[in-house]
Design a protein around this nucleic acid. Structure first.
Lengths: 225, 225
DNA sequence: AGATTGGCTTTTGTCTACAGTTTACCGAGC
DNA sequence: GCTCGGTAAACTGTAGACAAAAGCCAATCT
């Protein structure tokens, strides 16, 4: 009975610094997604290390991870280069995202309980409010949280991990476009919640597929002008 | 005119040692998939380093990569542990595999040319021969090559990368079961080729789905006795 | 004048060393 | 007999140093 008198929330995990490589990883990811590091740019380990105030080793480890996740290309004996996004690759990413998210929606419709549905509605309300305020960053963040919640309700950890990878990369391309699609997107989210609540697997799949395909189309329309 | 007098084949790429971390990575992956390193086992960096005749650093980098790909669990300040496969996780992996492979089959049906179909038939013949010979390892390898070829014909690089990750992990669980399913599996492959050659997207999707689902069922039947 | 070769600089790849943290063990006290 | 505290060992996390490979520029030879 160790946990007898311990109220759960009061011990806030004793905020540890955590491994340096993690923080370096997040810092670099931030720099890449915000375009502070431009695509194709050559990343010199010692520069990054000096700039972040750490040694080269954590930087190396962070770069390795970024490499496996597709953010940087690691050419042997030559170093790391920020990945250059292709139009073709963006389309493929969005296609795969559609596939994964649609399956997640189906599984969520099959498995979700009332608590999960309530959580989705809460996020949806938050997102709509953010749209009304014109807070683009919050809209994007809430959108990600919504999709992550659907993924959680699907209950497939492997699927969730893959989708998380894909989603982060998608968001890189997607963020500039978020503004255009704001309102319609959350209407579709409402439709998705309805399908999930009705335990309509086919319906949820189709709604999510249409939703993400819609996003993909929007992305392609944006670039021509 | 540098390459004037150099016959192409005679210079066999000058077998470069390649980055150490790569070789360490492959060595560890081999040790894990062959169960020389048992699930749940604690991997000590210095031990591995000494055993492989290298320093700790390449080992660390290899472990990081194995971590992101789900082969080992990397607990902070405690080290690396060989991932312990759960029944639930195996099922989830096979489910995701079904999803990815089915989509690949659809895209292959949409995009494949006659050359690609010929390559598939060739692999299929090779696989059937391997089954006849009872060469399990070759069966598994050829099966992987067949699915990889379908993935290649689909022409979606992102999808291929994800599927490659999933497939490698699936093969870990799957290899012991390969013997049971030998013959029937290649009959289904033939059906898949037919659907792709007919450019029947829906048909190819369904054949592949049935094929991989069949594999999943076989896996679950095996473990109860 | 062009191409090539040589050396020089930069950057990566690897190794060794040190500090911090966690875990396990062992003894003392209740 | 059980629990608590302290000590010690082992391992990870990080830093710094050294060697090797790749790219670049200039000088030289054809």
């Amino acid at each position: 009975m160790l946990s007898a008198g311990l109220p759960q929330g009061t011990v806030p995990k004793l905020e540890r610094p955590g491994p340096l490589r993690e923080r370096v990883y997040e810092a670099l990811l931030e720099l890449i997604t915000t375009r502070a590091l431009r695509p194709g740019q050559h990343l010199v380990e010692s520069e990054l290390a000096g700039h972040l105030g750490v040694s080269r080793q954590p930087v190396r480890e962070a770069l390795q991870r970024l490499n496996t996740e597709g953010w940087v290309d690691l050419r042997p004996a030559q170093g790391a280069f920020v990945h250059e996004p292709t139009e073709e690759e963006a389309d493929q990413l969005l296609t795969v995202r559609t596939l994964l998210e649609a399956e997640a929606a189906r599984l969520a419709a099959a498995n979700a309980g009332s608590a999960g549905i309530a959580a989705l509605e809460e996020l949806c309300a938050k997102g709509e409010a953010a749209v009304a305020d014109g807070d683009v960053d919050l809209v994007v963040a809430t959108n990600a949280a919504f999709h992550a919640k659907v993924m959680e309700l699907a209950g497939n950890v492997v699927l969730a991990e893959l989708a998380a990878q894909v989603d982060r990369r998608v968001r890189w391309y997607y963020t500039p476009v978020a503004r255009q699609r704001g309102k319609q997107s959350w209407i579709e989210h409402r439709a998705l919640i309805a399908a999930i609540a009705a335990r309509d697997e086919a319906g949820a799949t189709e709604v999510m597929r249409a939703h993400t395909e819609h996003t993909r189309k929007t992305y392609h329309e944006r670039e021509t002008p």
